[in-house]
Nucleic acid binder design. Structure first.
Lengths: 348, 348
DNA sequence: GTGAAAGCGCTAACAA
DNA sequence: TTGTTAGCGCTTTCAC
């Protein structure tokens, strides 16, 4: 296949002026054809379009945005793009953005709050019209008007104790309460909650829900919260220790995706029957959970609702910078499957 | 409307001129402080820095790039960000980019080639300095100088029959040959290859490797390639049909991540003993594969090498636009685990 | 309906 | 060293 050769007399990338010159019109007219904001007579329009085609002209969005003041793009910052919760969430946000003609600039902070600050700065410098952030730690500081450097911002998932921002997150406490209750209903008493990192607001809320359910069931003496950190391996190590103890838990409630994976690995590592010796209730949903046996029971966060709420909150904030602050919650669902089963009371 | 010249104290986002005015210097000097390209006397520097701090000034990268001609950013387009292969690859590329001070603009085409074209256009319009694309179909057309609209470009993973681009991909044929050989060594003869979409170069190469191994083993009559499409569910459906036949295969070789997941689901759905009745060899690696039993045997693509080669190819191309074209291959590794086992010859 | 000209915010020349 | 000026490519007043 032979590609159309670029005209020999122009060596650099063509600008609107080159197009205008070739079409024999003024640059402004070309702009009018491009944006469609002002009517242009048909014959002129046609020759402009032809010139654009022959030069293979591409408008420079940087210049356009600089002049126009809007980039039609939204910056998204997530801690870890390889985590299915975040990648699924991003996909939902992409769908929403496409609907409204926005482009997504996606960056992942790899759980490092220093990098996160850097990424946000860079997104701000790039003049994005809005920001969606799932803060990795405490990088987002207090704000009085739901903006970062004047850019409308929505916090998602990990809505910290930060006032001044619109936020969307799951009803973590209720979700964890529901999860713990499920395990209690199955007869479990020694239920260990596998948290990730201390200080993450969503995890703390989930821990609170777990504690509440335990207390209401009169099991406050059995409350056990273990912190496994932010990697699968560290979660595995932390819960493996628990499982090796003589009075090991009969059920584990993992607080997040990586904790779920870590806990499942740990159960395998200590060679316990699963789920007969130990039940596992996970958090978040992933395809593999309904592939191999036992199917993993989890508390599922509704990605679509999360994405949809987040997006409409952002659009609202962009239209009206002084709208009242909203902290939205979406409801999680219990997916009881095979990894949680009734406690067989052979001991004691 | 009556628009006057904006007074200096209006509450808009501060520009370099505002900083200069407050510090009592020229805009150029502020720029010099910011970029560090030209020396500035200490006292002036200090007052500039102070002015920046008090105004909370953020340089407008759009304007800077427009002037300077470089955005220090690389656009990446992948078909599906929720696929662990791609999200893992992106993470490697992010690491590489961070090393060289580049920013990543990540977009996912959701396997739609029309959207892909659109995303690439938009990245080009945004003046990225380079492009890394994993083409979803045939959106990338032939090029004579490894650029798209003059932007250095590297194709990754799915290196199509497109001449004119630097490419990086796995040695798909050798990898699939090795995988098929593994199954043959275990005594399997009826091995079905679960492809995804016809026309994807990497999948075609893998199919070729499978065929070659079958032929060399004298099993050409047993060659069976099934196309399952690009979703987990369609792959599941396609292979499930095969498994329900009387002369069902004793082994399945999945050609990609989603095929692996789909095949595992299908085996479960038809209620066959796994791996005793049917072995499964997957492609790509994911955390869950070594969590539940049986651990999944797969052919693993080396994400680090893929990302590293891709990045250095891109940097090389950016430095020297007329460098000779390179089509780089990286080696895959067989991870033989539990989902592939020796054929128990009870039949025939 | 069209062309000319003035910037958007920044930096790289050139003067001073 | 520092200030001044002239654009980068585009859009948007204005005249015509």
């Amino acid at each position: 296949m032979t590609k159309k050769k670029a005209p020999a007399n122009i060596s650099k990338v063509p600008t609107i002026r080159d197009v205008a010159a070739l079409a024999g019109v003024a640059p402004g007219t070309v702009s009018n054809v491009l944006t469609g904001k002002k009517a242009v007579a048909d014959p002129l329009k046609k020759s402009v379009l032809e010139a654009i085609a022959t030069l293979d002209y591409r408008p420079n969005l940087l210049a356009s945005s600089l002049r126009f003041g809007s980039t039609k793009s939204i910056g998204i910052v997530v801690p870890d793009i390889t985590n299915p919760f975040f990648s699924g969430l991003v996909r939902e946000l992409e769908n929403q953005a496409a609907k409204d003609g926005f482009q997504i600039l996606l960056m992942s902070s790899r759980e490092k709050s220093a990098e996160e600050t850097e990424l946000i700065r860079s997104l701000v410098a790039r003049q994005v019209d809005g920001l969606i952030i799932s803060p990795s730690e405490d990088a987002v500081s207090e704000s009085s008007n739901s903006t970062i450097s004047g850019i409308p911002t929505v916090l998602i998932d990990r809505a910290f104790n930060v006032v001044g921002f619109d936020t969307v997150s799951s009803d973590n406490e209720a979700a964890a309460f529901m999860g713990a209750q499920h395990l209690i209903d199955l007869g479990h008493q020694k239920i260990t909650f596998l948290a990730t990192e201390p200080g993450l607001a969503n995890i703390e809320e989930r821990a609170a829900g777990y504690r509440k359910a335990m207390i209401e069931a009169g099991l406050e003496k059995s409350i056990s919260v273990v912190f496994g950190g932010l990697s699968i391996e560290s979660c595995r190590g932390a819960i493996e220790q628990e499982l090796r103890r003589a009075d090991r838990p009969t059920a584990i409630f993992a607080s997040a995706y990586i904790a779920t994976l870590g806990a499942a690995k740990a159960i395998r590592a200590v060679d316990l029957a699963f789920p007969d010796d130990v039940s596992l209730l996970g958090f978040d949903e992933s395809d593999w959970m309904t592939v191999l046996r036992p199917y993993i029971s989890t508390v599922e966060q509704p990605l679509y609702e999360l994405g949809e709420s987040c997006w409409s909150l952002l659009m609202r904030r962009m239209k009206q910078k002084d709208a009242t602050l909203k902290n939205q919650r979406v409801k999680c669902a219990l997916r009881a499957r095979e990894s949680t089963c009734r406690l067989t009371t052979k001991r004691e």
